[in-house]
């Protein structure tokens, strides 16, 4: 599992695969005020990305990976 669900924080690490998207969506549906930690994430499958874009959770930590951060900042802060 590359997503760890804490009480109100989802921590995404490494390469987040397509299978995780369903779980991420369900969790975010239940927790409208949830935050996301992307610090250790190097890539997330587009399915996860669109879940984040649709749910618009607060990003607590942006990815350390600069390229990914650029992509995500433009996609998730509109």
């Amino acid at each position: 599992m590359t997503i760890e669900f804490k009480r109100n924080l989802a921590v995404l690490r490494d390469m987040v695969t397509v299978e995780e998207a369903e779980g991420l969506l369900e969790w975010l549906q239940k927790k409208p005020t949830a935050k996301v930690d992307l610090g250790a994430c190097v890539h997330l499958h587009a399915a996860n990305l669109q879940v984040l874009m649709a749910a618009k959770p607060v990003i607590q930590v942006w990815p350390a990976d600069a390229a990914l951060r650029l992509w995500l900042e433009s996609a998730l802060t509109i």
């Binding site: 998207a21 991420l24 549906q29 399915a47 996860n48 990305l49 669109q50 649709a54 749910a55």
Partner: peptide
């Protein structure tokens, strides 16, 4: 440079299909 957009306005989260690509 790259940008990502939703193809259509996002549906309510409860109706979102994670596996239908809308990007």
């Amino acid at each position: 440079w790259g940008g990502i957009e939703a193809r259509d306005p996002w549906p309510p989260l409860a109706e979102l299909d994670a596996y239908c690509c809308l990007l």
